[in-house]
Design a protein around this nucleic acid. Structure first.
Lengths: 135, 135
DNA sequence: CTGGGTGCAAAGTATTTGCATGAAC
DNA sequence: GTTCATGCAAATACTTTGCACCCAG
């Protein structure tokens, strides 16, 4: 279990026990939505407020400590910031996996064709994971 | 102005004036969120209810007459169903453009590497459109 | 200490539901 | 005629805000 105190402070966030637990939970689950995060944090802090979760998620997003991932037909999930990557979502079990792809070619071709200056690519593959294919 | 009566019926949706106007509005705007759609429809049907908008958007999604597009940091927008394509979003003016890309290579490589059976790809480029670059 | 975070309650916003009426087919 | 859509009002769900108290730095 990593200690995220310094990481939080680097992002101008005080390292409170609630925030450390959010960081640990994101680290161990990979991706999680607000409601699940709240349920998990309640086990450790039985009086934690949903407002605290929202306030922290919002300020962590503003300070780029975490990122939001928008999944088709689902509530947004959140993950710790890391190098750019894409996502795979299983439509059967809901599992979310990260995958690092080289999209530089796609990006530059698209920039040329559209005259957009491209800063970011959000890419989500939906399908059926290996485990669910065999069920 | 296309007539969407038959298209609606093909998707098992009765062709009401409200639905026809939703279809026309989506066609002319390309992409639109719930609130803007409501404001536009109110000009034609001054007593239209927001509940009607929500009910129609939901049933049109279920019947695949329209698709939802999730844009980073924005409310979802909706578009008429058409062949698979990706989106470009301008972070400055909010403009959304369609682009058709051949992602078959990317898709098959990813399927091989992850053992996912991939059904759908949601791809959004964020950046600055040509117009906003010159301002 | 001091600024900022927490928890609670309340407010605000977004979305869905139930039902009576009315329109599509 | 029957089925389903509409509009209204109410209910529910989701998210933010204000404030008193408390903790991290």
């Amino acid at each position: 279990m990593n200690n995220y105190s310094n990481a939080l402070r680097k992002h101008h966030l005080k390292a409170t026990p609630q925030r450390l637990e959010i960081a640990n939970t994101l680290a161990s689950y990979g991706h999680i939505n607000i409601d699940n995060l709240y349920e998990i944090l309640r086990k450790k802090f039985n009086s934690i407020s949903l407002a605290t979760i929202y306030k922290n998620i919002n300020i962590m997003l503003e300070n780029s400590f975490i990122q939001e991932v928008k999944i088709p037909h689902e509530k947004s999930v959140y993950e710790l910031s890391k190098e750019a990557h894409s996502h795979l979502v299983c439509d059967k079990c809901g599992a979310i996996e990260d995958i690092t792809l080289d999209l530089s070619q796609l990006s530059s071709t698209t920039a040329t064709n559209t005259h957009f200056k491209i800063d970011k690519i959000d890419l989500v593959f939906s399908g059926i994971c290996q485990k669910c294919q065999t069920l």
